[in-house]
Design a binder for these strands. Sequence first.
DNA 1: CGTTCGATGCACT
DNA 2: GTGCATCGAACGT
Length: 202
Amino acid sequence: MILPSDFYARPTLEVARDLLGKILRHRGRGGAAAGRIVEVEAYIGEDDPACHAAPGLTPRNAPLYGPPGVAYVYLNYGLHYLVNAVTEEKGSPAAVLIRALEPVDGLDLMRRRRARAKWRRGKPIPSDHELCRGPGNLTTALGITLAHNELPLTKPPLVIEDAGSAVEKIEWTPRIGIRVGTEQPWRCTIAGHLSVSGSRAR
DNA sequence: CGTTCGATGCACT
DNA sequence: GTGCATCGAACGT
């Protein structure tokens, strides 16, 4: 079942927690690929210094101010696309960054896309649990680009589904990869999952 | 183990 | 011109 837009029209920390265990699915050229969400981060409002809404409304961050249940995709470091789900009501800028997935469908397609990525051409193909480990890696594996910015997550080609998957143990920690706003424990993970990013044994 | 750093595009000041 | 919500290799302990 595809999550309705109501799901996203709630406090961002609740949406973040409830997104764990859900399925992010993309049907595009070359086929379908999907993964189970195991790591997310919340970015909440203009008062959150790490949120893209911190400078106020700009053309780039406009999707954050729009209706909930929409994808906010942007290019980071000139290399990686990052995908967020917009939350809360229209006019209240907040979103959940999807940071890692456990691959579920389309593993071959994911391997091909990861191998094709220009910054790692000629490198070994990642193992299964590394295919969607990290926010830049998962968009590469699913084929998500700037073209998906502002698309509703409630209808194909890009959707989030409830597969009835139970989540083992949820853990809240500070957000990573940012230089401000690290005091908030707004990173939510399935504790110990192999596909969660950050330092850990491979 | 840990830290550093290059590749790369674009929004923003 | 500066600074990123990154990745992964290359180095130092």
